Simulated assay, not measured.
Amino acid sequence: MKKTMKFALACTTAMIGTSALAEAHASYTIGITQNNVGVDSYQTTYEQAFIAAAEANENVEVVVLDAGGDVARQIAQMEDLIQQEVDAIIIWPTNGEAVIPAVRKAHQADIPVIVTNSNIAEAGFDFVASFSGPDNVTQGARSAEIMCDRFKDLGIENEAKVVHITGQPGYTTAIERAQGFNDRLPEVCPNVEQIDEQPGDWNREKSQQVMEAFLVKYDDIDGVYSGDDNMGVGAMNAAIAAGRADGITFVGATNFAVGYEAMAEGTYWGSIYQSPVDDAEAALKTAIDVLSGEDVPFLNYFDTPKITQENMDEFSKPVF
């Protein structure tokens, strides 16, 4: 689905080519194809922030597209942007492997591609100008450290059992955060046992169902790691309904407002602070810098610190 902006969102190739307004005010035309704007509040806020940043820059015209979580639609959108001969393409991949051929086509057409938020698979790195977003492996590792530190404070680091709810299968962010958590937890808390891992698909309701099944299957659960707070709160709600939340440490990532609120209430322990506004603005700036000939690192990360009940007063409540 295409969005409309006052000067920047040309809905057809002809409009991009012939609009006198665009020619008068835009130095670059940048296309973006997003993953799935409606799936959660992070992606919705990201799109709003991206549009706002583009509107604030009179030298940029953007075409904003949403794949709706559909890989085939995203590939078609990439091909459409290539045909429109945009100056650069930003892609938030629906699937890090499946989009590589489309990214290669853009590269072959001499259109620089900036990957945002969730990277594509390594096989496609040669076709990408830069990745702009969080270091998801580090985020997973930091979540493991938060959980281990909490277990040590509780004195259960030698006996705790953990379940793990991952994001959408095949999605690079989900893979990387799970990798970071799974690699780091045994390093910092070698006696903690991870007893199960199931996908929650970034969906709160599905994650609640996954947690309900965990609670039936396991009498002893001391910690739950979820790939984002949306899923984490779903898991927490299942535990509250079952009367078992008091004995469980909940840790997530991408600190949603609901996660922040649950931390303030004392039912959710910690997360990783990540702003969709920073994410969107960084992606647009990276694209502009690439087009301007700036020296841009291939992995252009922005920082995502730990947030827990103990330090949350240092952070503003998320807007998503």
Score class of each variant (00 low, 15 high):
T116C: 12
V63P: 08
F315A: 10
S130K: 02
P305L: 07
L9F: 15
G200H: 00
A241S: 15
P318Q: 08
C189W: 02
F298K: 02
G17T: 14
G234P: 06
W202R: 06
G293Q: 03
D229P: 04
I165K: 07
E281T: 13
H164S: 13
M312G: 05
V137H: 00
D289I: 01
F302R: 12
I89H: 02
Q34L: 15
E212N: 15
G170N: 01
D153Y: 01
Q194P: 04
A56N: 00
T44L: 14
S275N: 04
L284T: 07
A160K: 02
N191A: 07
C189V: 03
A121Q: 13
T94H: 14
P199Y: 07
V290L: 02
I114Q: 06
E176F: 01
I175N: 05
K285W: 06
P93G: 12
N59T: 09
L65S: 12
V162F: 02
M15V: 14
E159M: 06
I91A: 11
E122D: 14
A67R: 07
A213H: 15
G200S: 04
G252E: 05
D222A: 01
A174C: 07
P190H: 01
I75W: 13
I82H: 01
I248R: 05
P305R: 03
R244Q: 07
I75A: 07
A174Y: 02
P186W: 01
A141N: 09
A262Y: 00
V37K: 09
V63C: 12
A121N: 00
A283G: 09
G155Y: 00
D110K: 12
N191K: 11
F250G: 09
V37M: 02
E122A: 11
H107T: 00
Q274H: 13
V188E: 07
Q179S: 08
T166L: 06
D66L: 07
G38P: 03
D229E: 04
I32Y: 01
A287P: 11
T12H: 07
Q48V: 07
T166K: 11
D110P: 02
A141Y: 11
A56V: 06
V251A: 10
A123G: 02
H164D: 06
T94N: 15
L21S: 10
W269R: 04
T173S: 13
A241M: 09
A129Q: 12
Q84E: 13
Y273L: 06
D303T: 14
V113D: 10
